[in-house]
Structure formats: structure tokens, C-alpha cells
Simulated assay, not measured.
Amino acid sequence: MNWGVYEALLTGVNKFSTEFGRLWLSIVFIFRFLVYALTASRVWGDDQKEFICNTRQPGCTNVCYDYYFPVSHVRLWALQLILVTCPSLLVVMHVAYRENREEKRREKLGKDCEKIYVNTAKKRGGLWWTYLISLFFKALVDSVFIYVFYRLYENFFLTRLVKCSIDPCPNIVDCFISKPSEKNIFTLFMIITSALCILLNLVEATYLIGKKCKEMIHRSNNMTLHERIVKSSHEDQQHNNCKEQIQIGIHCKNSNINKMKTDNISK
């Protein structure tokens, strides 16, 4: 599996993320990806080979190993890392889609044409929703895998000795797991980092939603203030119009009185 491809793609997410998103990327690559790539295969590489049962019954050891290790830790973590990083790639693809639209618009209307987006990487409109959904999806993926490990491996931890009585084992046989302490420490480390990533995703989602609500409230207040100013200006204009009309009426009345006086004098 070429993990370098995922690393190269996810580094592009760094410039589109918030501070919490950058911290999440750092934890994923340093404390999950690198630790997995460097140590997981060594810790679990000889797992089945050193799973020893005190019987020579053909097939008994294989059946017992399959029962206690239905899915390898290494493969589960590989699948988890792939699924948890895919939503970040969707954000990169969405930004690339915006940039492609801008480029086609410039080719069609010229370089000086009006832009569709002020900033293609700014989290507004559809990109904001894509980014927010990706956060919840990443938190959901990590939560599901933590639950899977909890159900498959009896509260995450492995014991040194397990007893197996599955066919074709002739009776209850004792089986010994290789390096259980090392595997438990490694498993605990991966579970804690996954939980930390879930927390960061939820904190970042809360931050984005709170920021969006603050912007909406600020925009609403500005619109209200603008409406008040417009209304006040309109009322002032109406008042001035009424004042002008009153003055015109008074002027007309005075003119009529003067005219009547002139007529009386003439008579």
C-alpha cells in the first residue's frame, strides 16, 4: 500500500483547514500514520506464527487463532486510516472544482471578468457544508472503529492465555498469545489518539458553527441598523415634504389675502 499518495494529498488540506484541522492532521500523521507504518507490522508480524496451543491436533491452532483474532489489528487500522482521511480529500476536490470553474470562466470571458468566488479556498457556501460534513464523518468513522475494537477484542486488551474448545480441538486446550503486553500498549495508544481526533473534530465543528452563527447575527444587526437608517431618512424626507407643502399652503393663503385686499381697494 502506497501511503505516500495519501500523505501528499492530505498535505494540501493543511492550507484549507482551521487551526484545529491542522492539529488534527499533525496527530493523524505523526501519532497514527507514522507509528502505524513503523511499528504495527513488527508488533503483529509474527502474530499467527507465535500463537501456540498445547496440542498437536491438525487445524486446532488455526481455528483458535481465527476465533480470537477474527480481523487483524493491522488491517483494521489500515482501513480506519483510509476511511478517516477520505473526507479531507473531498475538501481538496471541492476546492479544485471551484478553481476549475474560475479557470473556465476566465477562458470564456477573459481575465478581467468578474469572479465567481472571491476566494476559492474560503469556506463559504457549499465548501463550508463539505468541510463541516467531513468533520462529522471523520468523527463517526473513528467512533465506529473504536466500538469495533471494543467488541472484537474484549475491552481492547489481550490476555496471555486463552482457552479454546472449538472443533477440531480434542478438548479444552490452552493457547498462548505472543507479546500481549506490547500489543496492549500499542492498542491503547491507537485508541487514545483516535479519541483525541474525535474530540478535535467535534471542537472544530463547534467552532465553525459558532463562527457562522456569529456572522449571521452580525449581518442581521447590520441589516437592522441599515433599515433603521433608511427608515429614518425616509421619515425625514416625508417630514421635509410636509413642511414644504405647509409653507406653500401658507404662501398661497397670504397671496389670496393680499389679492382680496387689492381688489377691495380698487373698488
Rank of each mutant, 00 (worst) to 15 (best):
Q80T: 15
N201Q: 11
E103K: 13
N240T: 11
K138T: 13
P170M: 03
K104D: 07
V43C: 09
E107W: 02
L25Y: 00
R228Q: 05
Y207C: 01
M223F: 04
N14E: 01
Q48C: 10
A78T: 03
M216Y: 08
N62G: 14
F29N: 06
C252S: 05
K243W: 11
L188E: 08
L23S: 13
Y150G: 01
W129N: 14
V144H: 08
R124W: 13
F31C: 04
W128M: 14
K231F: 02
E103Y: 13
F33L: 15
T193Y: 08
L208N: 09
K231W: 01
C164M: 01
Q245I: 05
C197P: 03
V118L: 12
K211P: 04
M216K: 12
I265K: 05
F145I: 14
G110V: 03
S233N: 15
L89G: 14
I250H: 02
K231P: 00
F186T: 02
F51R: 00
M223W: 03
A139W: 14
L158D: 01
Y97E: 15
L199E: 05
Q245R: 07
R42Y: 14
S134K: 10
L81D: 12
K49G: 07
N155M: 02
G125Y: 03
L23F: 05
R98L: 10
M216C: 10
K163C: 01
F20P: 06
Q237V: 02
Q237R: 13
K267A: 14
F156G: 04
L81C: 11
E99W: 13
H234S: 10
I27P: 00
L196A: 04
D174G: 00
L200K: 12
Q247A: 10
L202S: 11
S41L: 08
C175F: 00
I133M: 14
F20N: 11
